[in-house]
Computed example of a mutant assay.
Amino acid sequence: MKIGLYFGTFNPIHIGHLIIANHMAEYSDLDQIWMVVTPHNPHKQKSSLLDDYHRLHMVHLATEDYPKIQPSDIEFKLPQPNYTVNTLAHLQEKFPKNEFSLIMGEDNLNSLHKWKNYEVILQNHDIYVYPRLNSGEIDKQFVNHPKIHRVGAPVIELSSTFIRESIKNDKNVVPMLPNKVWEYVEHNLFYKK
């Protein structure tokens, strides 16, 4: 089975994430998409993150009506900070019959050469790239790489940071979040301060 790993802090998960994940599930050769909730991204400050299990629960709420998309807490059990190369090695060992690929935005592709052991990732895994506005120029080594697949997914310029700031400033973000996620955020008064 071909599984696309969509990593993120999902703080909170929003409709943009779901649109990309669903597009990958329906319009690529991936059989399933796993939304991998990252407990601590080495490039983000941990202090701004909601508790890992709240974010995982929101991904459960957001994906329960999408049979090809499921949440994953695989990184919760791994040493921190998490590096993608380590997570991929762990998954391949745990699920040897599955083939794991990465899903990332063009902006992440631009910084791929800075990732820990990115050559190992590219040697062993496909990467599915969705378009982003203002992603800059792609490094020449990645332009026609046989392991990198560009997917013409919709361009979604919506960020969790924008949503958190909007909630803090009492703006209506209901259209940006799956209904159950919004209800959970509202009920728990998340991002108010």
Rank of each mutant, 00 (worst) to 15 (best):
N22H: 14
P39E: 10
H90M: 11
L109K: 02
T84Q: 05
V174Y: 05
L61C: 05
I156N: 10
D170Q: 11
K180P: 07
H54S: 15
I74R: 13
P175R: 02
E64L: 14
T63I: 10
V143S: 11
S72V: 09
I13E: 00
K46R: 15
K192W: 00
D73K: 11
V129N: 07
M58R: 04
N108D: 04
E93D: 14
F10S: 06
I20G: 00
K68S: 04
P178L: 00
K46M: 11
Y128T: 02
K46T: 12
F142C: 01
P79W: 14
M35W: 08
L18Y: 13
E157Y: 07
V185R: 05
N172M: 01
S111E: 14
D73F: 07
L122V: 12
H23D: 11
M35E: 07
V85E: 05
I33G: 09
F100V: 14
V36A: 00
P131Q: 05
S159A: 03
L133I: 15
H17P: 10
H23C: 00
H43Q: 08
F7P: 07
P39N: 10
K192R: 15
Y83L: 11
K97F: 13
A153C: 10
H113F: 12
I13R: 01
E93Q: 15
I13G: 03
W115C: 10
Y53R: 15
L133Y: 14
P96E: 05
H23A: 07
H149Y: 01
P154K: 14
F142T: 01
D65H: 15
L112Y: 12
H113G: 00
V151T: 07
F76M: 12
W182T: 01
